[in-house]
Write a protein that binds this DNA or RNA. Structure first.
Lengths: 121, 121
DNA sequence: TTGGTATATACCTGTTGCAGAATTTAGAAT
DNA sequence: ATTCTAAATTCTGCAACAGGTATATACCAA
């Protein structure tokens, strides 16, 4: 994953919000959709965009597609994800997304066991 | 300067190289052009792109346009510039650009006195 | 098989981005 | 005024992106 590709992924607000959420742990499309309050097709297409650039990976579980950060991440990606996390601290939209996610977590325990990726928080 | 705009500025390699150079201190267009070995129109247009998003400011000195980072930078911009500097350490292209810049510095002392921006070495 | 849910894809539209070639503008020097 | 240099702008073409609507696919359940 090249540096420029990271920034391509980062340069749209919807994608930033998605990344912000998925950085906390794997999510399926419908969760993201509900959390962001954006139409399904939009979420789906942005996720596809991220996937082609290797920023996320996808795995099917029954009816759901579970999206997560890749297990192996370059130092660059790690650095930029950390930087992003710092930056969004001060932005209401992103904070709200995370708060909603926290509320939703309890309903999502089944998801936690699926992924090989360790969850943040 | 919004977060997304920072990433818009970062998502093209030519722009990344320009930013990497200008982060070291103010430069005029012809310097950037010479350092990158890219045609003038390309440099000029990317600089315009960066300027409209507030990532750089420009100031005329006689025949030359001097581009520099803005004097006041948001925390986000600072964080991302630092992150970028870390990331490019390992990339030959960017390192070479900086080496060339270092060689060119002696010929550019007149520039140093113009700017209000403190130079990073 | 039928129907439902979750997700992706195809198609269309408008916008933006990037490139190069040619031209123009601004200032300096003669 | 003319000429030189530095830089920006205009024009054209093309590819990518972002949005939406509609449709298709994949899996599950009855």
């Amino acid at each position: 994953m090249e540096l420029v590709q990271i920034y391509e992924c980062f340069c749209d607000e919807t994608r930033l919000r998605i990344i912000n959420l998925i950085a906390q742990g794997p999510l399926c499309v419908c969760h993201v959709q509900e959390l962001l309050g954006e139409p399904q097709v939009r979420i789906s297409k942005h996720l596809a965009y991220l996937k082609t650039r290797g920023l996320v990976r996808a795995e099917r579980y029954q009816n759901w597609m579970i999206y997560a950060l890749p297990a192996k991440r370059t130092a660059e990606l790690e650095a930029n994800l950390r930087c992003l996390q710092d930056c969004v601290q001060t932005h209401a939209v992103f904070k709200r997304d995370l708060q909603r996610l926290a509320k939703m977590r309890p309903k999502m325990e089944w998801l936690a066991e699926l992924s090989t990726t360790p969850h943040a928080k």
